[in-house]
Design a protein around this nucleic acid. Structure first.
Lengths: 218, 218
DNA sequence: CCAAACTTCATACTTTGGTATATTTCGTGG
DNA sequence: CCACGAAATATACCAAAGTATGAAGTTTGG
């Protein structure tokens, strides 16, 4: 067993994980050995279905899979996973792939596309890049999600005022725009600042940017 | 004031251009015909050197080239062009390419990688995507460049004040931070607003974002 | 060396921004 | 029915931002 002596600390070490999906057990074991040799956690699956049944590991993580899988095609699996909470960077391996396949995979965001046999170092480099991408992506996503949650706690009026205020209008201009008195705008504005947990207008403007506010023209 | 009104058209027609580089004249002509048939401008070159000697056309434009070129490799040419003012989206064609080559090209940002023979529609789709990318990219770049120019017109003090103000500090806090009186900060701040042509603080904050201010390490 | 630009600060004043305290209206859900 | 939150508004007041005028020391390029 030899599980680590980690306790339930709030700031747990990230533990980067590589998920390998391949129907060739020998290759799975070889990759597992390779990844573990550089200190990475590894999960092995023989098919896409097995992976989907499991629960996704914590970030950072990435997927290493063969284009040719039992059941689903690797490319179909890629688009399938991209629009799921399992979404993570993918590195493809192939024994007999072709160029159109490669192009499609790369266009869909694959980190790399390695032809067997590949050099260990190439795989490790690809995995390092993938894990770093996943870390960044997940970080940005979390920040965005948090802000979006705060934003949803605003009332319709407050959202409206936030949009106009962060677009650079003065309180009196906002008031004129939506036919309110200036004092009412001030109150809504105050509520927005508190609810959004913004410490300054600059803060609020940045949040509005993240939310994509102001670009709501139709 | 001798010229009439027709000569001063601020919104000139974009005229999308496709630049084809291939040593096979027959293919060049075929592509030229294809692109012109859908209303695109076309420039033809037999080698990378010829293209580099010419002056880049106005946006939107894109490059269609064979991986195997006389002289330079298509991939080398790609990285060469990426770090030049000629930078534009690239679509590769290949008669006998391999997967590692494809991966390298796509990683370096190629829009597509077509194997000969390809369908006309595939090429046209790729070109349409490339032109749209170029338009967006060039638009974003121009906005960024303009703001950067304004920013460079600021004095050292003004840049400093802008950074602190857009990070959300009040004038008095900025003053304390850099050991000035509040009134002096107000003056610098006013100069910043005028020089940056910002109509509001929200405006200035967005410019600071574009400039990457606030992430000033070391 | 001198003019021009940069930097600093003060005083005085106006405009915005922000908060607090009330009051009124309206609609929803217990 | 009533409590409660949302919305709107007013009055009053204080804090912060912005502008104008004046002035003096420092840098810098021609």
């Amino acid at each position: 067993m030899s599980t680590s002596s980690s306790s339930r600390t709030p700031a747990a070490p990230p533990a980067p994980t590589v998920i390998v999906v391949d129907d060739d057990e020998a290759l799975r074991e070889a990759l597992s050995s390779l990844f573990r040799s550089v200190g990475l956690r590894v999960e092995l699956y023989g098919s896409a279905a097995e992976l989907l049944a499991a629960k996704p590991p914590a970030v950072p993580r990435c997927l290493v899979l063969d284009i040719r899988l039992p059941g689903v095609s690797g490319l179909d699996f890629q688009s399938q996973i991209a629009s799921s909470p399992m979404n993570m960077p993918i590195i493809f391996m192939t024994g007999h792939g072709d160029i159109p396949m490669t192009v499609r995979a790369m266009k869909a965001g694959a980190v790399d596309f390695l032809t067997k046999p590949f050099r260990d170092q190439d795989m490790l480099d690809a995995v390092a890049t993938a894990l770093e991408n996943d870390r960044r992506q997940s970080e940005a996503e979390k920040a965005s999600t948090d802000i979006r949650a705060l934003y949803q706690s605003l009332t319709a009026r407050e959202k409206e005022v936030m949009s106009l205020v962060t677009s650079g209008l003065m309180n009196k201009q906002v008031a004129a725009q939506i036919n309110l008195s200036e004092i009412t705008v001030k109150i809504h504005r105050g509520h927005v600042m508190r609810k959004m947990n913004a410490k300054s207008l600059a803060d609020l403007v940045r949040m509005a940017e993240t939310l994509g506010l102001g670009i709501t023209k139709a």
